[in-house]
Amino acid sequence: MKPSWRYYVTGFLVLMAFDTLSQLCFKLAALHAAPFAADGPWLLRVAREPWVYGAIAGYLGAFVTYMGLLRHAPVGPVFAASHLNVVSVLLVSAWLLHERLSLPQSVGAVLIVFGILVLARTERGNDAAAR
C-alpha cells in the first residue's frame, strides 16, 4: 500500500517540529548551564538541566519519525526534510530568542538552503547509480 501525500507532508512537518523543539531545548539548556567551561562542574550543570532532557526527547521523536518516513518515501525528499529544519530553527531563533543574522550571514543562509535542495534532488535522481 502506497501512503498518500498527506502522510509525507504530515511526516515532514512532524520531523521538523521535533528537530526544532530539540534545538531550542539545546540552546536553552546551554544558556541555563552557562558559563561554559570544559570541565566536570559544567557537565554536572548540564546534566541537571531539564531542557537537556527535552532535547533528548526531541531527538528520539525525530529519529522515530525519520525512520517511519524512510520506510516509504524516497531518500532524497527525506534527506531534504531532515536538513531543511535549518529554516524552522532560524525562524524560531529570531522569534523566541531574538537572534539576528547580519546581511552576509543571511546571504550565506540562502546559499546553504539552496545547497540542501540541490543535494536532495541528486539523492532522488541517481541514488541507485551513485551508490
Binding site: 539545546f26 540552546k27 539548556a29 546551554a30 531563533s93 529570531a94 537572534e99 543562509a109 546553504i112
Partner: peptide
C-alpha cells in the same frame, strides 16, 4: 554541540553545522 551553543547564537550554530 552543547558547548558550541553556549558560545554562539542558535541560528549561526545550525547554519555552521550544515
Amino acid at each position: 554541540w552543547l558547548a558550541f551553543l553556549s558560545l554562539v547564537p542558535l541560528a549561526e550554530a545550525v547554519l555552521l553545522a550544515t
